[in-house]
Simulated assay, not measured.
Amino acid sequence: MTQPKIALVTGGASGIGAAAVRRLAAAGYRVAINYVGDDGPARALAGQIRDEGGECITLAGDVSDPAQVAALFDTTIAKFGRVDALVHSAGVDTAWPVPIAKIEDADVERIVRVNVLGTMWCCREAARRMGTSGDGAGGCIVLVSSMAATIGGRVGKTVYGASKGAVDGLAKGLARELAPEKIRINAVRPGATETPMLGAFAHDEVYARRIAGSIPMGRVAQPEEVAEAICWLASDAASFVSGALLDVSGGGFSIAS
C-alpha cells in the first residue's frame, strides 16, 4: 500500500497557503499547517481537514527566524516521519502602496526578513531533511513568488517586487544545485489574488476595479486557482519539472497599474 505523502505548508492558515493545504489534503497528503500569530484560523482549517477525513497538525513558527524554521521541520518529521514536499507560502507586504522615499525602515526589514531570508531558511532546512546525501529520499519544494517579480511590482510595491525577484532566483539556482539530491524546486507566480494580503482591495472599490482592470482576464485570482498549480507542481505528474516559474496571473498585468 502506498504511504501518504507529507507536506509542510508555511503560511498555511490563510490565503493561498490555506487553499494549498485544502487541495493537498484532498489529494491525500498529510499536512503540517504553519502559522504565525493568532492560532484560530489554523485550528479552524485543521478541524475542517480532519472532518473530511484528512490528517494534519498545526505548527506556530516565524519563518524569518532560522531556529523556528528548523523546529517546523523537526516537529513535522517527529509526527509524520519525513517531509516529502515543502510549500513555502509565507510572505508579507505593506497593506497599501508606499513610495520608496516614504517606506519605513521596519517595513523594509520585515519584507526582506520574511520574503527573502525566510525563503532561504526554509529551502535550507528542506535540503537538509530531504536530500539523499543525508537521510532523505528526495522531495519537492514549491515557492510562492509573485508576478511582481517580473517587472519589479506595481508602483509603490517595489520592495515587495524585489523580494519576490529573489524568490525567483532561488528557484532557478536551487533547481540545479538540488537536482543531485533528488529534490525538485519550482515557483508559482500569482497575479493579484483575493487574499488578506491584497489588503486595500477589500476596502476600496475604486482600487479594486483598477487592479482587476489591469489584468487581461478582467478579474483577480481566487486562492484555489493558485492552489491547483501548487498541487500539480508538488505531484508526480510534474516529476521532470524543476526550475520552472509558473505564472498564474490571468495573462499578466499592466505596468501602469
Rank of each mutant, 00 (worst) to 15 (best):
T2K: 01
T2Q: 04
T2D: 08
A7M: 09
L8S: 11
G11D: 04
G11F: 07
I16R: 03
G17L: 01
G17V: 01
A18M: 01
V21P: 06
R22A: 09
A26Y: 14
Y29A: 09
Y29C: 11
V31S: 10
I33L: 11
D39K: 12
G40N: 03
A46F: 07
R50E: 13
D51T: 07
G53V: 06
G54A: 09
E55M: 12
C56Q: 01
I57L: 13
L59C: 12
A60R: 14
V63Y: 13
V63S: 14
T76R: 14
K79Y: 15
G81V: 06
R82I: 02
D84N: 07
H88M: 00
I100D: 08
K102R: 13
I103M: 14
D105V: 14
D105K: 15
A106L: 10
R110Y: 12
I111K: 12
V112T: 06
R113Y: 12
R113L: 12
V114R: 15
N115A: 08
T119A: 10
C122S: 12
G131K: 00
D135S: 15
G139P: 06
S145Q: 00
S146D: 06
M147G: 06
A149Y: 04
I151P: 01
I151W: 14
G153C: 10
G156I: 05
T158A: 13
T158G: 13
V159E: 13
Y160E: 11
Y160S: 11
G173P: 02
A175C: 06
A175E: 05
A175R: 01
E177A: 08
E177K: 02
L178K: 07
A179G: 03
P180I: 05
P180E: 06
I183M: 04
R184M: 07
R184C: 06
R184G: 08
I185Q: 08
P190I: 05
P190K: 05
A192V: 14
L198R: 15
G199H: 10
F201L: 14
F201T: 05
A202P: 11
E205N: 07
R209P: 03
R210C: 04
I211G: 11
G213I: 00
G213V: 03
S214K: 13
I215C: 12
I215M: 12
P216G: 05
P216R: 03
M217T: 02
M217L: 10
G218E: 12
V220E: 06
A227P: 00
A227D: 03
I230G: 12
I230C: 13
L233I: 07
D236M: 01
A237E: 11
F240K: 03
S242M: 03
S242D: 01
G243V: 04
A244G: 01
V248T: 00
G250N: 02
G252M: 02
F253A: 10
F253C: 10
S254E: 10
I255L: 13
